[in-house]
Write a protein that binds this DNA or RNA. Structure first.
Lengths: 155, 155
DNA sequence: TGACATTGCATGTTACAACATGTATCATCG
DNA sequence: CGATGATACATGTTGTAACATGCAATGTCA
């Protein structure tokens, strides 16, 4: 049922240290999930990062957020929020305007078109979530969440 | 000590479902780890994928492996092994030649230069592993490994 | 043997990531 | 008030990822 990482990547020898196996497990699992997510979002013309940015802006409401704030809220940090928002603006999913309070900032807000696309795309993403995590019990999920938080605390 | 994901990405509301939090935890943790790994490998002019390919070819020994086999053994699948090996060959880290047994295949082998670079780069990667995972106990690591394997089994 | 599919790899193209650098606006402090 | 630095964003460049397509070598089967 649950295959060993060692077999998945056809490694002949067992891992010497538990930490190595854990590290590679995180990376491989994430890569597979990202791939599944990319496939699910492709029909909507969105990358996962773009999808997340739209969700963040929806959560921000009318006032919107500046680029820096969007960057801080992204699940996976990206060092180029300007062009991320560029592309969303080009396709009309968000709108941008200079903040009169601080003219350095550019406030981004989600458009109706963006909201509509978000609602159409969300079920595809939930399907991925259910498929991959739906059969994992709450106790295991909790252990996973806590363990990963502890890893991140090491950085 | 262990921050909540919810706070890390400045989300105001708690996650509705445990699965969502687990999914995003995997993705975020992996992104942070990949970033740390990329930084560690940068002085050696290697990406993480390239580093892994070199390790795989070192493990294969004299006979080498063909591109398909390298792809199967990579932690994170990449759909372009040809050019991955191209770059390693350009910098002299691997050598390639057609397999006379099956002329479709191209056997890749690691060069002495590749072996030497691998040995110089490995400590940097182990440092990342120790920093991020060194303080996580074996029991938690085991739970992490098992939980992630169960997630992958869902796909 | 010859038609057909399959496998393994190469290559063109597009989009995006990552890094460095530039520019306008704001904050701070003498 | 003016100089200096910090902040927020824009932009140029390079390298790579992802996808599609094409070609050569092999396998399959009538």
């Amino acid at each position: 049922m649950t295959p060993r990482l060692q077999d998945e990547i056809k490694q002949t020898r067992p891992f010497e240290r538990l930490e190595t196996e854990a590290l590679l497990s995180v990376l491989r699992t994430s890569a597979l999930l990202e791939h599944a997510i990319a496939r699910a979002l492709k029909p909507f013309g969105l990358t996962h990062t773009q999808y997340n940015a739209l969700r963040i802006l929806r959560g921000a409401g009318e006032g919107g957020l500046c680029g820096r704030e969007v960057g801080e809220r992204l699940v996976s940090p990206v060092p180029d929020v300007s062009r991320l928002l560029d592309r969303l603006a080009e396709t009309g999913l968000i709108a941008r305007k200079r903040d009169p309070e601080d003219r350095r900032q550019v406030k981004a807000t989600i458009t109706d078109e963006g909201l509509e696309l978000l609602e159409r795309a969300t079920p595809a993403l939930e399907a991925v979530q259910t498929r991959w995590l739906g059969d994992v019990g709450d106790e295991r999920l909790r252990a996973l969440i806590d363990g990963l938080a502890e890893v991140r605390a090491g950085g």
